[in-house]
């Protein structure tokens, strides 16, 4: 159903800044039509069995990927309410049939499916948006004095109270997945604390540790409406090995080098490293629960 609307004077307003393009449009619709109009602007999913059918949010004309990020509905003429539905606190609200509703839609730029914010991001279902943010991290590793001596001829091992430290640069990155219809709760639970078994976001296998997810509801509006914003947190630890390759989360510093390499993989009696490896891509598939 197409809803009759008009775009009001003064609309639109477009801002282009360092954080991307934002815009605002202001519409007038009949009071009874505002819920459906809002649904159309936000977009939605329809679920049929285990399949999801995506109804995309309406983009800002001429600006692909600029979609509605928030909406405000207010009376177009607040001075002319009709209170016939207001008999108790829960029976209804004022309506404004004479002048209708004013809908203010704020838009922001989200990366389009075919133009991700950076390369090598995991594939995601159509209609969802994945953005990447990275931050600094570091790890301080204290070594034993026994393996070190001053770099002078005949120098003995360091005194026991001298423990050289090694700063290991690490990184924390977030993959923020928006407009998710059904987070994959099972994958989140099963993959937390595991490392990647294959290259992931450009990082070598074994170097990315999945720390967990922060999940919040977004665009919750009425029955069957609403998405989730899923923020995945990963820590990347990649130490260049002397003989080539990278040491990840299952490597530790060995006092005595083996073939000139101090960073060696750790395993237990069963041959398992501290962190199990797994395919992290199910994090970016819809859940079925």
């Amino acid at each position: 159903m197409t809803i009759a609307f008009e775009e009001l004077e003064g609309s639109p307003v477009i801002a282009v800044g360092a954080d991307g393009t934002t815009a605002r449009r202001v519409f007038r619709v009949a009071w009874a039509d505002w819920p459906q109009f809002v649904r159309d602007l936000i977009g939605s999913y329809r679920r049929a069995g285990t399949d999801y059918y995506f109804i995309p949010p309406l983009e800002f004309p001429g600006l692909p990927g600029v979609v509605v990020s928030s909406l405000e509905v207010s009376p177009f003429d607040p001075g002319n309410p009709d209170g016939t539905e207001v008999s108790t606190l829960t029976s209804g609200t004022n309506s404004y049939p004479a002048a209708g509703a004013k809908i203010t839609a704020d838009y922001e730029a989200l990366p389009a499916d075919d133009e991700p914010s950076r390369g090598e991001l995991p594939a995601t279902p159509s209609g969802t948006y994945l953005t990447y943010r990275a931050d600094l991290g570091s790890e301080f590793h204290t070594t034993s004095s026994r393996g070190w001596h001053w770099d002078t001829a005949g120098s003995p091992p360091l005194a026991p109270d001298v423990n050289p430290g090694i700063v290991i640069p690490t990184g924390v990155f977030r993959l923020i997945w928006q407009r998710v219809v059904a987070p994959n709760w099972t994958a989140i639970r099963q993959l937390r604390g595991k490392v990647n078994d294959a290259p992931f976001v450009g990082a070598a296998a074994g170097t990315v540790l999945f720390l967990g997810a922060r999940v919040v509801r977004q665009f919750e509006f009425g029955e069957g409406m609403g998405f989730w914003r899923v923020e995945y947190l990963f820590s990347e630890r990649a130490i260049e090995l002397a003989g080539g390759g990278l040491a990840g989360w299952n490597h530790a510093y060995k006092e005595q080098a083996v073939n000139g390499e101090h960073w060696l993989p750790l395993v237990d009696e069963d041959g398992n490293g501290p962190y199990a490896a797994a395919d992290l891509t199910p994090l970016f598939e819809f859940g079925t629960g």
Binding site: E6, L8, N80
Partner: peptide, 18 residues
């Protein structure tokens, strides 16, 4: 209430108020 919009063709239109 007087307003102009994409549908008023360059003229102000009015809606009955209170």
């Amino acid at each position: 209430v007087a307003y102009a919009s994409s549908a008023t063709g360059g003229f102000r239109r009015r809606l009955p108020g209170v």
